[in-house]
Design a protein around this nucleic acid. Structure first.
Ligand code: ZN
Ligand code: ZN
Ligand code: ZN
Ligand code: ZN
Lengths: 161, 161
DNA sequence: GCTTTTATGCTGCAATGCAACAAAAATATT
DNA sequence: AATATTTTTGTTGCATTGCAGCATAAAAGC
């Protein structure tokens, strides 16, 4: 399921719906793949879904600490690893931070992230022709691309106004 | 000066020449911009130029320690910051590592990195149409791109053979 | 029930990166 | 030249990110 629509979250969207959808999708994915969305994993995902801003691992810990016993770092890292392996969370390399995926694309598809430096929100462009042509350019040099990190920092449409 | 030629370093190229060129270029750049290529800064650049593999900051420290008094981490980080500000070194975000630029492009130009997971070498595609179309795709969503991180992991032409 | 697998907890630590202040060196000014 | 100013380097210490190794608990398979 590769969606091509580029999405930057608008400030006025129904984020409750947005987050609920993502949780439902996560449950679906785990069912399908015979994986377990345990309480901790779900809590980490929910923490990340509280906004469209990427959170550092220790920010996630702080958020969880508000509602339950403060988890050890390794606990959160393990949950993040699980969520990433199942395509539910992305790592933003240029920020050492983690972002809940608001789309329903499979784990392997190529994604470009748009990071707004004013509001901190992150949008995704999934499997667009631009990301494709990038891979093609690499291939033309004889390089066999496998995994891409594409992170574009700038200002989102809303923050320019 | 934006070169379009995509380059992945071949295993048989004259790397001595390659590194000497880069040093000469660095001296030129610093002269032009009235910046000082001090001994430490030069030594850090030379360490990075010892290969086309990105080095972690602490790997740089280890290399320098072989020839002079072991520098403190902050010393190396400051030199790296200087070299990056002047477009002589790139940071590879997905590796927390630093790469000497083997091209002569200005600091602001858009670059895509090709990272071979077998030999560790990194090539650069400078200001190609693919990177351009990526920015365009972002702009089409109303996003104003400013700085891009494009890092493609895979296997280089030589390592496939 | 018992075994095997999977997930969590706990302790400790490695790797990356930088802040704050002091000393030294280079540049500019009188 | 002597002094003031700016730039660079040294030193100490610490914050942040991330994970290894082993023990315990829970779940799944037999
Ligand atoms: Zn939302
Ligand atoms: Zn996504
Ligand atoms: Zn070379
Ligand atoms: Zn470069």
């Amino acid at each position: 399921m590769t969606m091509t629509r580029p999405v930057f979250p608008t400030p006025d969207h129904d984020h409750g719906r947005c987050a609920a959808d993502a949780i439902a999708h996560a449950e679906q994915v785990c069912r399908n793949r015979a994986q377990k969305l345990t309480p901790i994993r779900r809590a980490v995902l929910e923490a990340l879904l509280s906004s469209h801003r990427p959170l550092g691992a220790y920010e996630v810990i702080d958020q969880l600490a508000a509602e339950r016993a403060r988890p050890a770092p390794i606990t959160v890292y393990r949950a993040l690893e699980f969520l990433m392996a199942n395509g539910l969370v992305h790592r933003i390399e240029s920020r050492n931070a983690y972002l809940a995926c608001a789309h329903h694309h499979d784990a392997a598809s190529m994604v470009a992230f748009l990071i707004c430096e004013r509001c901190g929100s992150v949008g995704e462009i999934v499997a667009g022709p631009a990301t494709q042509s990038l891979n093609d350019a690499a291939r033309r040099t004889g390089f066999a691309p496998k995994l891409s990190v594409v992170e574009i920092t700038g200002t989102c449409a809303h923050c320019q106004a």
